[in-house]
């Protein structure tokens, strides 16, 4: 009895893998193979005139990356960008999600549409929008000068603040949608229950609503963190080349310097950071007892 069930179980297991194999093949070709290739290349001594398989292997690229203070500074700066952008989208995104959650039908649809628009326009268009707004003779400069807060035109482009604002704007929809989704799963009478037990609306929000939206906040933060880490076009355009984040460095090394092995090292480091953040967030989610949705 047990033996026969075990054999069928075993057969099913095999069948399962066979059924999965197309998906596995796609995964292998699209994700695993390039990642492996990246790893192999990262250990090669750069020699553009040689084929990949003719090159010499050495850990030199890694040594260079981890000892050069410039690259360490870029990593630090990129991580700092991630933290600031995540925190800013978290605060603004929560406010937006909350107002959408509380809005009535027509206002709700309108607000959701407005929040989603950046998603449809693409990074280039958004960045150009900010470029125009923040430029030396753009409307923001004109406005600030009209108010008397600025004596002469100031070029906001190329500043950290400008890039961060543009990034927050670009990634806000992901945060809003994540938080809104978990707000919606909160039973409507929980705030009433909190009130009947003596909680004011702020206290009820902090003690009931916020903990129950932890899942959405974590998911949104993970998305925004990853996207900031890999952001390329926005820092490039709004930063006018003055802001160097990891993605820009990778581009430089791969396309301008033509040092693929070194670009591979940076890419792998970026991937590793992303992996660590994902693991951390997964851990956070589990910590909350798993009842977050």
């Amino acid at each position: 009895m047990t033996q026969s069930s075990r054999t069928t179980g075993g057969r099913r297991f095999g069948v399962g893998w066979m059924l999965l194999s197309p998906a596995l093949a796609v995964y292998g070709i699209i994700f695993l193979l390039p990642a492996l290739l990246l790893m192999v290349i990262s250990f090669q001594v750069n020699a553009p005139e040689l084929y990949l398989w003719e090159r010499v292997y050495s850990p030199e690229n890694y040594r260079r990356f981890y000892t050069d203070p410039y690259f360490l500074k870029v990593i630090g700066k990129t991580l700092a960008y991630c933290v600031v952008v995540v925190l800013a989208t978290l605060v603004v995104g929560y406010l937006l999600a909350w107002s959408i959650y509380k809005a009535r039908s027509f206002a709700k649809t309108t607000l959701i549409t407005l929040v989603l628009t950046p998603l449809f326009s693409g990074a280039l268009l958004q960045s150009l929008g900010w470029y125009l707004l923040l430029a030396r003779y753009g409307p923001i400069n004109a406005g600030l000068r009209a108010l008397g807060w600025l004596d002469k035109p100031f070029n906001f482009l190329g500043t950290d603040a400008a890039v961060m604002i543009a990034l927050v704007h670009a990634f806000l929809p992901f945060m809003v949608l994540s938080i809104l989704n978990s707000l919606r799963t909160i039973p409507a009478n929980l705030p009433d229950a909190a009130a009947s037990l003596g909680a004011g609306s702020w206290s009820a929000f902090i003690r009931v609503t916020v903990p129950l939206t932890k899942g959405g906040m974590i998911a949104g933060s993970g998305l925004v963190f990853g996207m900031t880490l890999g952001s390329f076009a926005t820092p490039g355009i709004v930063g006018q080349g003055k802001i160097q984040l990891l993605a820009q460095i990778i581009y430089q090394q791969a396309i301008q310097v033509f040092d693929w092995p070194f670009a591979a090292v940076i890419s792998l480091n970026l991937l590793a950071m992303l992996g660590m953040i994902s693991a951390l967030l997964a851990l956070l989610t589990r910590r909350t007892g798993g009842e977050v949705r």
């Binding site: 039973p187 009478n189 929980l190 009433d192 229950a193 909190a194 009931v208 129950l212 932890k214």
Partner: peptide
């Protein structure tokens, strides 16, 4: 107040 679906705080 005791609610029909109890409204306990799940967290």
């Amino acid at each position: 107040f005791v609610f029909q679906d109890y409204a306990l705080f799940p967290h």
